[in-house]
């Protein structure tokens, strides 16, 4: 474990806590894409299949349980909670996320480190995570009013993967034959998808304005 990875995990943890806090306290999910949340729940379900069979550390297991629990409870809140679901903007959250799942699954079947069920599902979760933010970014472009918490959520979600890239660089130089192109490329693509969001987020922070993305 290195500082970049710990910072990345904490940033990721913080992003889901910010979102859960927003939904749980103000009972609103305005501006949040249910499709992205569903994709993330699928990402964690596919990635943590071996949570009980392959023990790595207490930290690893606890964090996996937190990510699984938080992503599924966010989906539950947005789908079934009688107050929260009313603030879900389903007319705007129209990204056909099923069109993301199949290509990622096919790609995982073609390009993976080992052709086993667990490994293909793990690779699928990497590819899916890289594009999971798209419905949320599309929704942000559409809804003019990006409230602070949603903006912070997306920012933290992007920052965590950027920190993971630093972690991979660090591990590449400190651990012999630590080479995982699949992880690196999908992590890089994921972070690049946030590039314009980061730009506008930084601009709004610098000019102390409300965050708004160009149409």
């Amino acid at each position: 474990m290195n500082i970049f990875r710990l910072a990345g995990d904490m940033t990721h943890l913080f992003s889901v806590l910010v979102l859960l806090l927003k939904i749980h306290t103000i009972k609103s999910c305005a501006g949040v894409s249910l499709k992205t949340q569903e994709l993330y729940a699928l990402v964690f379900a596919a990635r943590y299949l071996d949570i009980f069979t392959n023990y790595i550390s207490l930290y690893n297991t606890v964090m996996k349980l937190i990510f699984l629990g938080s992503s599924f409870s966010i989906v539950w809140y947005m789908r079934y909670h009688k107050i929260v679901r009313r603030s879900y903007d389903k007319d705007q959250d129209t990204f056909r996320h099923y069109f993301l799942i199949l290509p990622c699954l096919l790609l995982a079947l073609l390009i993976n480190e080992k052709f086993t069920f667990k490994e293909v599902m793990w690779t699928f979760s990497l590819y899916l995570e890289a594009v999971a933010i798209l419905p949320q970014l599309v929704l942000l472009q559409r809804t003019r009013n990006i409230d602070n918490l949603t903006g912070q959520y997306v920012f933290l979600l992007g920052a965590y993967r950027a920190l993971y890239i630093l972690n991979w660089v660090y591990r590449y130089f400190t651990e012999p034959h630590f080479v995982h192109w699949i992880t690196w490329v999908s992590g890089l693509v994921q972070t690049l998808l946030y590039a314009d969001f980061f730009y506008y987020y930084f601009q709004s922070w610098k000019n102390n304005q409300k965050l708004h993305l160009p149409a």
Binding site: H12, N54, I56, K64, Y164, E175, F178, H180
Partner: peptide, 10 residues
């Protein structure tokens, strides 16, 4: 089977 190292990440 020895889990490849990369899967020690979240």
């Amino acid at each position: 089977d020895e889990q490849p190292k990369s899967h020690d990440e979240l």
